[in-house]
Structures are given as C-alpha cells and as structure tokens.
Simulated assay, not measured.
Amino acid sequence: MTLSLYLPIDELNSHKPNPDLAADYLELTAFFSRKHQAFTKDLINASEIGAEDDYADVEDEFCNRDEIVSGALARILGRQQALGPSYPFNLDEGGDLLLFSEDELTLGQTAYLLCLILSHLKSVSAILNGSIVYPNANEIRQLRQYFQYFATAGLAAEVGGQAWSFGHPRPDHSGFLDKLEKIWGVLKDGTVDPDPASPSQPKDDQIDIFAWRSHRDGLPGFLLAGAQVATGDNWREKSIRSHLTDVFWKRWFGRQPVSQMVCYHIIPFARPDVDFRDDVLTLGNILHRLRLPYRVEQAVALKDSGVQIEAFDHLSAAKEWITNYRHRAYAETAAVSGLNG
C-alpha cells in the first residue's frame, strides 16, 4: 500500500493556477516514497482523479495536464537554482523523475522540508490533510517552534551577525523585559525604559527575532533587523512594518535607538514570483522557502566562526524529527496494508 496524498486539482485549473502546489505534491510524494522518488506521471494521474468532467473536450484536457506538469517542473528547476545544495531533491535530465536525497540531511535541507510540511497543514493546504502522516496537534506546535529556531539562524546569516530568538515562548524561558535588557546590553544603542502606558504583560510585542552586525568601534549605526515569524494562513495580516517604526521604540525605550531597524517577515511558504513584489511592499524584506534554507546553510559557517545564534543547538533535534517522520510513513503504511490484507 502506498501513501495517499490529495492534489487539489481545482486550484490548478483556476484562472490563476498554482504551479507551486503541483511542485510541492511531487516533492512530498518523493519524500515519503520508499524509493525516494516521484514520477511526473504521478502528477498526471492525480490530476485525473475527480477532474474527468471538468474539460470541454479531450484536447483541452491534455493541454491542461501538460501545463500542470510543465509548470511544476519549472518551479522545481527554479528551486534548484535558488537553493543549490540546500534543496533536498534532484530532477533527472528528462524531467520524468524527482529524487529525494538519500544522504544524511544538512540543516539547510532540513529547513526546506520543515517549510514544505508547514506549507501543507490543513489551514493552508489540503495535500496532507486526512493522510496517515498528518502531524498531530503537539507535533504541529513543535514544528512551529522549530521553524522559529531556523528563522533565527536564517536571519543571523542574512545580516551576517548575532541573532536572538525573542518570540514567546523564548528558548531560555526569560521574561520580556529581562530578555530585551539582555539584548540591548549587547547592542548598547538606546536604553530600555518602558513607558508607563505600555502593556503590563507583553509576550514579544510582535517581534520574534532580533539580529545585528556590529562594527569594531562599538558605536551605533549598525545593521539591525527585527522579524515576525508567521506559519499560519493569516501570515499576510501580520505585518510589523509600522509597528517597528511607530510603536515598539516608544513603548519600551526611554532613550530610543538611533540605528534603523530593518523589517523582515519569515514564512515557510513558496510564493509566486508575480506576487512577491507586493509581498515585500506590504510586509518588508521576506525570507521564505526559496531563501531561508540557503541562509540556514550559511548560518552553519557563521556559528562555526564563533558568532552567537540563539537556539542553534535545537536544529539537530529538528533534523532528527524530520528523519523519523519520514520513516514513520513506512511503518504506518505497512500497518494499514497489513490490516487490509
């Protein structure tokens, strides 16, 4: 018995087709396959289910399915180019077979697979919903926490410097003000001194990560980034651009920093190229599935050089979880097959 994933064909046949969805279907099929592979025809076969009455004629049907396949392959090739060795799949020369890497996963590849799974929770996509490998509630919470840690490493590499995981719950279990004071004890630009009207029980005040790159003179005017990490379907509604510039400093600092904080939005999703400009316009700089894994690979070298990246030691646990999750698919598929046999 094979693992059954669902391809939402209506989203591929819409006026605005989603080739990323088809590419993700192939990747997930290869990821869960015992043979580490997915054939292009898997996508064609999946598109035939439930779509037999959606076409005006046979010619229209074949053209549409060819477009689904060609669109998926184009996105996969784009991912290979953007991510290099942090992309855990390879496409054969003929474009007929997608192969999942059989080697031990790197942290960048782990970040990609974590993004891929988070992109197909049922609030976002139907591909995994109802399958025997759909994560349970506790696993979903853990996956989102892991993503926070990978996002911290990715932002550290993005700015080329130290990063803190500030989002609640914090890995060191510190309180909001204690953590803020600790960070600014390093940055030394501004003074933490909450306004009397500021919230009395803040969790993270919408900022999940701080990262900076210092100058040797120790003076202000350095590269500083603040990021919101969003993994749910409402990620577009979580912009912190105006909050960073108009609210955060005034709430928590008596002497406000003069270094300008660059706004980042970090998400696990693959975004269409045509929509990306507007994403950046409304949300700030974005690290998404085609950027974050590459930055995570760079963070490994950054950490090895002595740069402090909070929660970096948790990334190996995420790699172990991803490996066990894939193997669990084998065991559960075999168990179901035995029951049916």
Rank of each mutant, 00 (worst) to 15 (best):
S4T: 10
Y6L: 06
L12C: 06
P19T: 09
L21W: 10
Y25N: 01
T29H: 02
T29R: 03
F31W: 11
S33I: 11
R34S: 14
K35F: 13
D42I: 03
L43I: 09
I44L: 14
N45W: 10
E48P: 07
I49R: 11
A56C: 08
C63N: 15
C63R: 15
C63T: 14
C63F: 10
A74D: 15
L97I: 14
L99V: 03
S101Y: 05
E104G: 08
L105F: 13
L105W: 10
G108Q: 02
A111G: 08
L118V: 07
S125P: 08
L128E: 00
I132L: 15
R141D: 04
Y149E: 15
W164I: 13
H168M: 12
P171K: 06
H173L: 09
K179S: 15
I183V: 07
W184P: 00
D189H: 03
T191D: 07
S200V: 04
P202H: 01
Q206H: 12
I207P: 05
R213D: 09
R213T: 12
P220S: 05
L224M: 12
Q228I: 12
D233K: 00
W235C: 14
I240P: 01
D246V: 12
F248M: 03
K250A: 06
Q256D: 12
V258K: 11
S259D: 05
V262H: 15
I267A: 11
I267P: 02
P268Y: 14
P272C: 13
D273S: 06
D273C: 03
D275Y: 13
D275E: 15
F276H: 05
T282E: 15
H288M: 11
L292W: 00
Y294W: 08
V296N: 04
E297R: 01
Q298C: 12
V307T: 07
F312M: 02
Y325M: 00
R328E: 03
T333V: 04
A335T: 02
V336P: 00
S337R: 06
S337T: 02
L339A: 04
